[in-house]
Design a protein around this nucleic acid. Structure first.
Lengths: 331, 331
DNA sequence: CTGAAAGCGCTTACAG
DNA sequence: CTGAAAGCGCTTACAG
């Protein structure tokens, strides 16, 4: 069986209490010679601390839950990766669950994770999902919403402020001569997409409102249909990169030149945007910053400060020259 | 504080043993009336089973670790999503850790996860990383390698057999008239990429061997350089989709027509391949099947059967007509 | 500085 | 069918 503190204590000729003090660096001091004997015994026996037992006793499991609509979507993949990195830096293990944008599956995922007694829960809610805060409060687990907080929810929100970015993207497209810019929204008006849409509505260049699901296939089918009927706008701001990728794919397949016939920009700014064809002009999301803050709020009890802003990265799809790959980062 | 079984037992006028039998559906039978009282008490008090305590006592935490080189790479994102879905179906929670293709970080990630007493560990090893099997065996945790098993490692491997797929891709390119096909490999000859490369070498059409890192930026820079020096091959099989995406981006930026001047195919077959410009001909990986089997081997103790094969999906980048988006799945 | 002991919330033989 | 009790491996007051 696995080596326990009792085994180490026996070998080192001391008590489990002292072994615990050594292994955890406290809360009591230990004589240098004793510490060495314990460390030697632990190494010889291959001792590995049992975090489950520690969790039961101390009340901290070292686990943090991350609930995402879809871990394979590049936006949530980037967000999830940033969260995992930030949690790892603070010594936590990340438990992930994917909800497929489904409210019921989200509620289930939250319950299943809460049963594991996590030290915290980060939720990127699906449109129309329940507030995870009541269940979390019930279980005594702090929760923070990232990306999107359900209507009326009590969870603290850590998310980027997209309004400035949307305005910058629209102004940029206008600079390329576009006076009517369509917006490609999601199926419902919820969360950050709704905020981006409201920002677009404020622009004098706001044109047609288009809608499709949050999947590249959905955007591709919409675009193929519009192209076939000759109803494509001249310029389009997509709410998400995922949708923009579908637009670019369908435009290419239909022989519609981007940016000449159809200028495109997007609001997610995932790492993928630099490698689409043509490269995608996008408002880059501050993933690392959002993740860092979410973890600080969750585990450090910090108050959320003003929301960080995305930054417009002009590339080829809006009409700018192709930037090339000299300055593109690895990974 | 949180509601415990003792609270429920007190309210239902019974013992914690009986509450446990009801909550877990066994291992002892409980009279229907008693069961109802327990269920009612649990509901009234908002009882939530403490899995940490159950884990300590029963030896099963309900957690399974998944170690990936990079969760934001579409290949590993798809694999991770399939694993999470399969694990969720078997009632397990997924703990993820990302290693950034680094051997040392992988060893750390494995140790951190093992401390959480998982019921199993799934590892997609980075090139040159250590075998996770000894550490896992030491902790009494079953382990399975997916995608790639380090040289000489003892871990069971569950992975697709790519040889047939590579041959099919090469034959397909030959059918488009290409008699010299370059191969874009990774920086080292390791794992599935090495297997794909060996399969390519067996082909009479094997041409030049190219190498770059497993990142789209790396492939884009290589391609841009080759294009600038007029050294681009006429046909190229990329080891991974990630690299192929970089090739397509750089080719477009350099004005190199795909497939007319440069035909491209890839070996990963991620969901992204249907939405590149032009769409990417690829050997589709059986992600779901690999994930399903990995979980069965890990938790059910099944023997790994013969490896599933990827299937070639011809799209535009090899020279076939653009398939369009009618049959593309959502998500 | 060190050690004996209680107890975290469960599961599960064991006795009734 | 039900209940009292041991014990999983830790952490941490408490006593020395």
């Amino acid at each position: 069986m696995a080596v326990t503190m009792a085994d180490v204590a026996r070998r080192a000729g001391t008590s489990v209490a002292v072994v615990s003090y050594v292994v955890n660096g406290g809360p009591r001091p230990v004589a240098a010679r004793t510490r060495e004997r314990v460390l030697a015994a632990a190494a010889e026996l291959g001792y590995r601390r049992n975090r489950v037992a520690a969790a039961l006793r101390s009340g901290s499991s070292g686990l943090v839950g991350v609930v995402l609509p879809d871990a394979a979507n590049p936006y949530f993949a980037a967000l999830g990766r940033a969260l995992e990195a930030a949690l790892s830096r603070s010594g936590r293990l990340t438990v992930v669950a994917t909800t497929g944008y489904d409210a019921e599956r989200q509620a289930e995922a939250v319950e299943r994770i809460l049963a594991a007694q996590p030290d915290g829960l980060v939720v990127a809610s699906a449109d129309g999902a329940d507030d995870p805060a009541p269940a979390a409060a019930d279980a005594g687990v702090p929760v923070v919403a990232v990306h999107h907080r359900p209507e009326g929810a009590r969870a603290v929100l850590v998310a980027a402020d997209d309004r400035a970015g949307v305005h910058a993207a629209l102004e940029h497209l206008r600079g390329h001569g576009h006076e009517r810019i369509a917006f490609l929204a999601g199926p419902a008006d919820d969360g950050p997409v709704a905020e981006r849409m409201r920002a677009w509505r404020e622009s004098p260049a706001a044109g047609e409102l288009l809608r499709c699901g949050y999947a590249r296939g959905s955007a591709a089918r919409l675009t193929a249909g519009l192209a076939a009927r000759g109803e494509l706008p001249r310029a389009l701001l997509a709410a998400t990169d995922e949708q923009a990728v579908g637009v670019l794919a369908a435009a290419a397949a239909a022989g519609v030149a981007v940016p000449e016939r159809l200028a495109v920009a997007a609001c997610d700014g995932t790492p993928d945007a630099a490698f689409t064809v043509p490269s995608l002009t996008a408002v880059e999301q501050p993933f690392e910053e959002v993740a860092e803050r979410a973890v600080a709020v969750l585990l450090g009890g910090e108050e959320p400060r003003e929301r960080p802003c995305g930054r417009l990265i002009p590339r080829r799809s809006c009409g700018c020259p192709e930037p090339g790959f000299a300055d593109v980062l690895e990974g």
